[in-house]
Design a protein around this nucleic acid. Sequence first.
DNA 1: ATGAAAGCGCTAACAT
DNA 2: ATGTTAGCGCTTTCAT
Lengths: 330, 330
Amino acid sequence: MRDIADRLSLSVKTVSGALTDSNIRMSDETRQRVRSLAEELGYRPNEVARGMRTGVMPIVGMLADGLITQPFATEILRHFDNLLRTQELAVIVTSIKDRGEVDKGIADLRRLLPQHIVYASMYHQPIDLPRAVRKQIALMMNCFDVHGDIPSLVPDEEAAGYQAACFLLQRERRDIAYFNLPGLIAGELREKGFRKAMDEHGVAIEENWVRPATRGALYSGSARSLVRPTISAWFEGGHHPDAVICGNDRVAMEVYNGLREIGRAIPDDVAVISFDNQVDIASRLDPPLTTMALPHREIGRLAGDIITGRRAAPEGLTRIPFRIVERKSV
Amino acid sequence: MRDIADRLSLSVKTVSGALTDSNIRMSDETRQRVRSLAEELGYRPNEVARGMRTGVMPIVGMLADGLITQPFATEILRHFDNLLRTQELAVIVTSIKDRGEVDKGIADLRRLLPQHIVYASMYHQPIDLPRAVRKQIALMMNCFDVHGDIPSLVPDEEAAGYQAACFLLQRERRDIAYFNLPGLIAGELREKGFRKAMDEHGVAIEENWVRPATRGALYSGSARSLVRPTISAWFEGGHHPDAVICGNDRVAMEVYNGLREIGRAIPDDVAVISFDNQVDIASRLDPPLTTMALPHREIGRLAGDIITGRRAAPEGLTRIPFRIVERKSV
DNA sequence: ATGAAAGCGCTAACAT
DNA sequence: ATGTTAGCGCTTTCAT
């Protein structure tokens, strides 16, 4: 910078002003001369020096609540990062395994003077943070602040459940079964949407066909699965489902196995629809799975727009719609 | 820092010395006094100021060649990050979509004065970087420098192929078929290991049973699959395989579908073994899939140890062994 | 419209 | 063994 100033016989301050603050009063000519020389010399401002002076680095910190564990949720990170990169902002991710690590995570991030700190979760859940912490978090992705203080971006689970059910109903499926994800917000809301759709279409729900996918109060991939026995039970009698809504794609994978075992064809005998769109699974099942895609990309992008100020932060909860991916299972 | 100095009637320099450089000559007592007061005050050095002075920030940059796209490869990142975190180092990931973005990626990273820049790939591949770039990269993960200039950590594919074949051979399978991943280093080396094992055990390879999993010169998830027709062909005649080695877990998923279609039971009629251990898939297949787990965790950890200097950087290529995950398909 | 100078918090050379 | 001082590259008053 001094170099540029000397060559142009200007002061450092003028150069600084020309390069950064375009509101500062200055002759256009001077500004142009400075800028073009800077370009020519390939001048890159020292972000660290600038950061020291201004107290802020071109960095956004992300508290990742298990995000990196759940591989397909990294989609959120990917698109968030892509957007911030266009604004010359770097993302620093700090994984936290449990809520107790939040303080440490924030402290770690703050050492580098980030412009903002965001919180992202691997699955849709309510987050209850102490007030002092809440004030430091600009945005929540794929989860929400129970106090409503922090703008939060979450998938619109209920609409997705509604849409999935409508999709089946419109294709003349009436005997719809539902494998729920116990203990999860996503499960609860998706089921609610399902019930609403059935209700609106005047189709009665066979309560015996609305069952949890796993044993235990909380759905988890490692919990004992109830899919196989439940399917067997459903198809024992004469009256059985002609469609199954699956809590997520992994459940759908088991439903495929179960239906195959009892010799039912998808989609001819039984249609299957699911949630998440975990592509490695959904596109490779046989037949390929029709599923409601989680709006991870949209969440990441919208968050990026908000953080960079290109879009105003909506207050409270913002629900982002799913997108249906039609394959061959319905 | 000045605060501490004043309270102890010491100079700033003494405080700085006491806190950072433990080699500096100083009375132990002074050092202790400084440290305990710092602790008491919850003093945290301003990393940015320090960075400006020393020209280095407590940051490691990672050029992620598609890493975040291939969800399960983020395992590498996760463990790398975990390790660096214990040394108060933050990781900044810059995704690059193609080799042409490397320069830009490095420039972006350097703005923040990272201590090192590492290169990580989503799949095992040779990387040819210009010399000027090579000099700036400290380590390659899951890929290697074709010039041998950069220490590189890669999965030991050949050993994995060898081990998978031995696993089958020891269980009395002799008629082993192999679905290869065309155009990939991983595929080539795994096949080599397979051939070596067969050779050592004196079992002849039926060349007709060594086939590519997809059409085209390069394996890819979206390429037209050859699994189904190939399996049909193999099992048409009387002499057919009693085991299949699959290029990866996604291929295995298709092999399951194919075998099921022609009514062959796994593992009774045909054993299946695979590579990668993409858990969402492998553990949920029916029966759960026995597979050679990619050493992503080990690569991430070892890289962390090297970057933090806890372990010396091995020269050239280091091959990290796979781990077999025995489930029910063999 | 531009220049001079102070100072962000820290480290390192030099002095005592 | 400890203190003094300069300065890292930038932004920001305050003068001119």
